[in-house]
Structure formats: C-alpha cells, structure tokens
Amino acid sequence: MAPEALLSHLNRADGSATYTQNGYSIIGAVNGPLEVQRRDELPSEATVEVNVRPAIGVGSPKERHLETLLASTLRTIILTRHIPRTLVQITLQVRSLPSEHAICGVDASLSLLPHLIHTALLALLSSSMPLRTTVTAALVVLPAGRDAAPMLQPTARDVMLAKPIQSAHVFAFSGNGKVLLNESDGSFTYEEWEEACEMAEEVCCKEGGVGLSDAMQVDGGSENLERWLREVVRRKVEKEMRWKSGT
C-alpha cells in the first residue's frame, strides 16, 4: 500500500507533514532557518536538531538513538552550508503504531526508522528548505529458515506471522541511488545483506523498472517510493498553482 501524505497542514510551523502507512502514523514539523543557541552554533553550516516524540509517554534512550541516526542522515541532504549559523528544527511526533509493533520480533526502533525518515523528508519539502537531494528508506526483514523469502516493507502483522525473524535491515537511499543509512539487526551473511540491499534499492530509487513495479503493484501491493514522492510533490504544486491554472 502506498503511503499517504498530507503536506503543510499545521499553520504555525514552517513546514509540516502527516505520513500514514501500514498503521504507522507520524506527524512531522520543520521550523527553520531559526536563530541558533550560541553553544550549538556552527560557523559555516546550519545545526540540525531532530526531536522524536513517542506515541505514549516521554522520550527514552531509544528515541535519542533514533534522533542521532536521523540527524546525521538529514544533515547530509540539507544544504546546511547555504544557511550557516542557523538552526533547522525537525519535530516528529509518532501518532499511532500498529498493535503488533512491539511484539513483531523486529527491533521496534528499526521498523519505525523508515517511516520517520519519510515523514522528515516530507516536512522538509513542505518547508522549502534547500536540500541537496531526496531520501527514501525501506525495511527488509529476513525470516529464519532456508526457504523463507525476504520481506520488503512488510506490515507489522506479516512480520509477526513470519516469526522467528533472523535479521532486519533498514536502508536509506539518496535520490541519486547512494546509500545514506544502513542499520542491521540479527545474524546474517554478507550475501544476505547484499540481497536485502538490492531489494531496498529497487523499491527506493529504481525509476526505470516501470514494468516490474507495475507487476508488483498487482500482486504484492508494493511500489516505487521515488514515483510516490513525485506524485506527492505534483499534488502540492497543483494546489499552490491553482489560482494560475483554474478559472
């Protein structure tokens, strides 16, 4: 199922997005460029601050870990040198998780990470922050057992049914097909990792494989993330340009 995206719906933030897929729903807001605190100020680039808020309760070391991963990934795609000595503040509030999220056998922060990355990217696009490129991410889960096929962007329910899980991988790719982030958990061989990486690359950035992804849409319901992103942007532009084209 393609993710649903709603852009620029919070009117106080500079950019905002709500992202929903497979029971994961996250609200993202971006503010910036803002005035930066003296101790965080970098003389030649912008400071990127990421706040992750869980669905229930206050943040824990798990959220801090996700924030570190997100901040370093997003710093590479934001043109921080265009806006030196400023602050880009990204807040991600998890709104709801699928009920199987905690018990599906994959590390909870790992299965959440791709969704957080997509939300942050959409909010950044909505805030018109200068970006070097885009980023898309995918989760690949390898169930235990020789004949089990690797699962690409599975729902939490599918993962729970496929237990036991041998390893889980998250890959994030930039718009030009470079790996920006890889987090892996579990035991796996290099060949398995490479296969997972190729699968993720396929869904994240292969734009040429139209025939393939069409076939996948029919039977698997999976689809190309880059194409999805373009569709989201097209809708945003359409809304903004409505006065020019219509009546």
Binding site: I77, L125, P130, T133, T134, S174, V233, R234, M241
Partner: peptide
C-alpha cells in the same frame, strides 16, 4: 507544460 522538480533533480 510545468516541469515538476524534486531536490537534486
């Protein structure tokens, strides 16, 4: 015809 661009295009 409008050309729609993503960052990095």
């Amino acid at each position: 015809a409008t050309t729609i661009l993503l960052p990095g295009d």
